[in-house]
């Protein structure tokens, strides 16, 4: 019994990063808000670097609730698309070189999204992670948490339902 030799770590990292990059860079609104993703294995952390255009209350000042909501929704959608992609990518069935923005895998569609604002968003970077609580063939339920300076002090959280794209479409 011989196991196939594992691929070199750089090959694996390069493939995963290329797939994530293609997914994120293909969506104009993600670019408009400046949202970035940090990857550790399959775990994603979304980052919203501070920008003046994200302000909703110039007097406090505080981040706009709409910008925060969009950040959380982007985090949920990318997490779902990433999870759907993962298996094919790891099995080598998906070549990131073909993942051009013009023919990305279809993205999940938001059915509904509820955002809880726990404290006002400070004028600095924000972070978010999504957890897929249920993922069926057609529907998925995702919870997202967002924080700024302290991981345990959330400034917003959200739950959303999503319609998954047809497999192979």
């Amino acid at each position: 019994m011989t196991r196939p030799k594992p691929e070199p770590v750089q090959v694996i990292k390069q493939r995963r990063d290329a797939a994530l990059h293609a997914l994120v860079n293909g969506v104009p609104y993600i670019q408009f808000l400046g949202v970035e993703f940090d990857r550790r294995g399959d775990e994603l952390t979304a980052i919203l670097p501070y920008a003046d255009k994200l302000i909703g209350n110039p007097i406090l000042p505080a981040l706009h609730g709409g910008g925060t909501a969009a950040f959380l929704e982007i985090t949920a959608i990318i997490e779902l698309a990433w999870a759907a992609l993962w298996e094919d990518m790891e099995a080598g069935r998906l070549d990131p070189a073909t993942l051009h923005p013009s023919h990305l895998p279809r993205l999940p569609k938001t059915i509904d999204f509820t955002v809880d604002y726990l404290r006002s968003g400070l004028p600095r970077d924000a972070y978010a992670r999504a957890r897929i609580n249920r993922s069926g063939r057609r529907y998925a339920s995702v919870h997202v948490e967002a924080w700024q300076d302290n991981r345990s002090r959330l400034f917003a959280q959200a739950t959303g339902h999503f319609l998954m794209p047809e497999r192979g479409a």
Binding site: V27, A70, E73
Partner: peptide, 11 residues
């Protein structure tokens, strides 16, 4: 993007 519609409705 739904997030842009969300921002409009929130405002």
């Amino acid at each position: 993007h739904g997030g842009a519609v969300f921002a409009l409705m929130d405002t």
